[in-house]
Computed example of a mutant assay.
Amino acid sequence: MTEVLDIRTLADLLPISDAPDWLRAACRGDTNPEAWFPFPTQDYGYALSVCANCPIMLQCGEFGRATGQSGVWGGRNLDRGRVQ
């Protein structure tokens, strides 16, 4: 049996996207977008607290890991797709 992966494109999660999942994202329209991509010495607390109540947190985290993203994705601090 072949497993089908649900890999999303970055456009699925961007604010310009009209993807249904993005419309439900807790961070959508946030006035502090830099919080998701802080320098290593900055605090991730704000982004993590917003992610904690997000209905697409799991999908977002899967996307970040699968595509090698850095920053806060799905309530996790990632560095090139690896959880820190």
Score class of each variant (00 low, 15 high):
72 V>L: 06
41 T>W: 13
43 D>M: 01
19 A>Y: 01
22 W>I: 10
65 R>G: 00
8 R>N: 05
37 F>A: 08
72 V>M: 04
14 L>Q: 02
43 D>W: 01
19 A>E: 12
51 C>W: 03
45 G>K: 02
47 A>P: 01
48 L>R: 09
52 A>G: 08
16 I>V: 11
15 P>W: 00
56 I>Y: 05
46 Y>I: 00
82 R>K: 14
47 A>R: 06
56 I>E: 06
61 G>W: 05
84 Q>V: 10
71 G>I: 07
36 W>I: 03
28 R>A: 14
37 F>Y: 12
77 N>A: 12
55 P>R: 08
57 M>I: 15
7 I>R: 14
10 L>E: 09
32 N>E: 13
23 L>P: 00
13 L>A: 04
21 D>Q: 13
29 G>K: 05
66 A>K: 07
77 N>W: 12
29 G>R: 03
9 T>G: 13
37 F>D: 06
48 L>I: 14
47 A>V: 04
11 A>W: 10
9 T>P: 02
9 T>V: 11
49 S>D: 15
62 E>P: 00
32 N>Q: 11
9 T>H: 09
36 W>K: 02
26 A>Y: 01
32 N>H: 12
53 N>P: 00
52 A>L: 05
58 L>V: 14
15 P>Y: 01
76 R>Q: 15
64 G>C: 05
38 P>G: 06
32 N>W: 00
62 E>F: 10
29 G>M: 06
53 N>A: 11
40 P>Y: 05
9 T>A: 12
57 M>R: 15
30 D>P: 03
31 T>Y: 01
